[in-house]
Design a protein around this nucleic acid. Structure first.
Ligand SMILES: [Mn+2]
Ligand SMILES: [Mn+2]
Ligand SMILES: [Zn+2]
Ligand SMILES: [Zn+2]
Lengths: 149, 149
DNA sequence: TTAGTATATGCAATTGTTCGCAACAGAATA
DNA sequence: TATTCTGTTGCGAACAATTGCATATACTAA
């Protein structure tokens, strides 16, 4: 559903121009395995398009995020993005200890989101969600060597 | 429970020095109404301590966060902090439309966190949590004037 | 195909945040 | 109190991300 052709049509329908830079960035995301950093995307882009600027990469990723073609993932300190796969939608659990990211099925958030909506008329955005914490491996490690800070 | 005296003791017990800068920053947070931006804290600090550097403000806030005296709140684009009140603990719902923050009682997260822990042995950090979305007012506004982007 | 227009880009400057380091100042020791 | 030790600060530089602006380019309509 987020294949090249469909995305191109989405962009054209919204009046968003199909520049070589944008096509290239989307293709890099499609080929790369999920969760790419901006610098990573930029580096790959330069090999085929040497004058592309990092600002263009940022602008493109933010634009694609706004129209839901790309999803921002809160992994590590810096910005990471992945292509949005509407059929394989998932959220993330990120270990603040080792940095690993685990996928989380959307069902886990539905009840939570609905309750909040009922109680507060607040519409939580549960399309793209990241919960931080400690993975089982790091939790084990921590039991033994426990530093205070 | 996070009154001056108790916090000072906490710091001393951890071997963290009680510098004038740190005392000042904590006092500013205590007096200010919740959710202060870093530049706001820095500006207030300068009126009493003109040479204090913004780096010191950042370092202090991060340090206080690490020992749970201060809580980072994901409001807007920039970093915001508030004093941690263990007895009045709460999470936040932030409207991505108007930027307003609403408090959320901790009960809402407990079930969610426990289920994740049972199913994945992942220990989610539900001490400091922010869910983004749209508040009821902005949802109303949006129904009428719906811009695509 | 060719203009005409609005959008997108590269580049440089700016912003928000972090870091390295030498100077400084609490705490501990004598 | 004098001395030493170690954590902390201010400052400047680095870094990630964003923005302003003049130029270039994708699209539209002749
Ligand atoms: Mn993923
Ligand atoms: Mn609050
Ligand atoms: Zn881990
Ligand atoms: Zn709102």
């Amino acid at each position: 559903m987020n294949d090249r052709r469909t995305v191109f049509k989405t962009l054209r329908d919204l009046g968003i121009r199909l520049t070589p830079q944008r096509i290239l960035i989307l293709d890099i995301l499609r080929k790369g395995n999920a969760h790419m950093g901006v610098e990573e995307v930029h580096a790959k882009a330069r090999t085929r398009f040497p004058y592309i600027d990092i600002a263009t990469v940022y602008r493109t990723l933010h634009l694609m995020k706004k129209i839901d073609v790309v999803t921002e993932v809160a992994i590590g300190e810096r910005l990471h993005f992945e292509l949005t796969h509407p059929d394989r939608k998932h959220h993330h659990m990120v270990c603040t200890c080792c940095g690993k990211a685990f996928n989380l099925a959307p069902e886990y958030l539905e009840r939570f989101g609905e309750q909040i909506h009922r109680d507060f008329s607040f519409e939580p955005d549960v399309r793209n969600f990241t919960i931080k914490g400690k993975c089982s491996l790091c939790a084990d490690k921590f039991e033994k060597s426990d530093s205070i800070l």
